[in-house]
Design a protein around this nucleic acid. Structure first.
Lengths: 340, 340
DNA sequence: AAAAATTGATTAAACGTTTCATGTAATGAC
DNA sequence: GTCATTACATGAAACGTTTAATCAATTTTT
């Protein structure tokens, strides 16, 4: 049934020419007369020939494959934040333009990265916070083009694409301040030094300071970045005793969970509590009340990563090593001046 | 800098043995004395050797790569429904267990599938509705293990994993009927014959018929499967003249857009209008009001697809060709008896 | 008209594995 | 001590490309 693979040899034989010539036609290399070129192309069409990537890769020591590397949660599970889809989407779309394919890889804490060399991977995009510098160093040793996203390993020798997280933290907070809020809680994921949340927290601090509002440790709530995390934080944040009138949640997911939690406690948003989110994913627009949030363009982030990666692959040194994407406040209905 | 690749030859030389022996050690084939085995393993560790996948693939005519194939939207864009992330997640997790890697591929209408042969892909998972039978036939010709998800090409020779969509349509509708609703609108994506929506629609019809409620063409709203689609449909559905008291939206995304749209028109859910969704993605739990919906386990769907695929790859004929996953009604707060 | 340059095509090596047929040494049977 | 058997190890071919070196034929230069 499955007739064995059509090779370059078959094509060569069919049109009475050497395999080198066929190869030249395929790759547009060498010299080939118009006549033979046509003959070969015709044969290729007729036999429905497709060159073997394995053979090619073996020869060229490359694979036209790039990997999106995401850290695994416990038990080999991948992150469930659908945010990743948008990222991967942006990456795949750009990669396709560059004739690269995208392979998705979840790695655990004890990863040896052998797959990188096994597969001759042409490039790696690391997304998320890789905490231990050990990973980063393993990667460096691999000597493979890499881009880090949202992880901000320090050292300018790395290619990185990140968000202006500090500014995001700043404008979100500023928005609340300018509405007249003073006791503004911050609902954040883990505050890893050098992680995105940390930088957003810095922006939060700067805005407070600028407005002359004292920073209060106890207003910072560190919870898992998930709707459930937000939901659970609601009761503590909403407690009358705290006098909190606004919350800046560092992800829309958490913000939405929070709003739900507050709602279940009879605390209205924005009547009793204003809420600002971060990301502007689709749900922000359609939740009730529509969520005021700090927008980032995740798909674009993926695209930039590929741009940085292909530049490295093609050894283009003219490209910048760090790309920082902008943020934008999107005011909607979840924020208002504090009630008396 | 980048010392050239460590090959099996280097390992062989280092421990004074032939490359065949090294290969045998790596793959556990042939006979190797415990002594040499240890020697070789030690050398492998010392040199940090990783066998080249390209070379291996070339020899074995396989790649340990499976592709998730999703249809592209216009202009080369990938679907933006984050639903896909969960699917891909399930697929990657299972594939990892099988030592397969997952590659993501968006294909346009004019796809030739040459990449399948180029890359020696071991298997394909098609997700979503591939309308033209032409695609299906191309795939068949490829003679590569394939699984179709949610596309229900007819013909039992195909491996497919699907949902019990008809039942889903049925229980969602039944729920509304049993609350006392009669004028129940159906908000659906395109009603492609043999598509998921079509089968859900059939379930809707069955429930109505069983309850003796006449089916009305004009209660079926065909809109893009997106929050925006739902939002836009709100005014037509909510119009007093229609007398509609409940809506069954065939995706949570649409349901959430719809609720938002109704809300903006001053129509309360469930007070003035009950809404049922489909999927039970996370947002269903956290939106306000929490969405009554028909649950499906998308991650599980991905897992099943890989199971069917690996069975084919390993030529295990004992496996079933079609898997149908169950659905479950999750009652929440967006539905209630119709108000007088 | 001979020398030089250009064009078009070929040969053969190389990429890094796996595997089969073969070879040798050691063990067991008689 | 010979013969058969077993246990390990090896040589070499094959997988399907690309590419550098080479060659022959034609065209250009002098």
């Amino acid at each position: 049934m499955s007739r064995s693979r059509v090779t370059i040899k078959d094509v060569a034989k069919l049109c009475g020419v050497s395999i080198a010539t066929v190869s030249n036609v395929i790759n547009g290399t060498g010299r080939v007369s118009l006549d033979t070129q046509r003959k070969v192309e015709q044969a290729i069409g007729q036999l429905d020939f497709a060159p073997s990537a394995s053979a090619r890769n073996l020869k060229d020591k490359k694979s036209s494959l790039i990997a999106v590397v995401v850290p695994l949660l416990e038990k080999g599970r991948l992150q469930d934040n659908p945010f990743y889809w948008h990222l991967v989407r942006g990456i795949e779309e750009s990669a396709r333009d560059e004739k690269l394919h995208v392979i998705l890889i979840g790695i655990g804490p004890d990863e040896t990265f052998s797959f990188v060399r096994e597969q001759h991977l042409d490039g790696l995009i690391f997304v998320g916070a890789f905490q231990d510098t050990e990973v980063v160093e393993s990667v460096l040793r691999l000597n493979v083009p890499s881009v880090f996203m949202d992880s901000m390993v320090d050292g300018s020798e790395f290619y990185q694409v990140a968000l202006d997280d500090e500014l995001g933290g700043y404008i979100g907070t500023k928005h609340l301040l300018s509405l007249g809020h003073e006791r503004i809680a911050l609902l954040t994921g883990v505050l890893l030094k050098d992680g995105v949340n940390y930088r957003r927290w810095q922006g939060y601090c700067r805005a407070l300071e600028e407005a002359g509002v004292p920073y209060r440790e106890e207003l910072v709530y560190e919870e898992p970045t998930s709707s459930l995390g937000g939901y659970r934080a609601a009761s503590r944040i909403g407690a009358k005793s705290g006098g909190i009138t606004a919350v800046f949640a560092l992800s829309d997911m958490a913000a939405i969970g929070l709003i739900k939690g507050l709602h279940d406690l009879g605390i209205g948003v924005p009547r009793d509590m204003s809420v600002v989110g971060f990301d502007d994913d689709e749900r922000a627009r359609y939740c009730i009340p529509a969520l005021t949030t700090v927008r980032q363009d995740i798909v674009q982030k993926g695209r930039e990563a590929v741009r940085l990666l292909t530049a490295q692959i093609e050894r283009d040194d003219s490209i910048e090593r760090q790309v920082t994407l902008g943020v934008e406040l999107v005011p909607r209905q979840s924020t208002s001046p504090p009630s008396r």
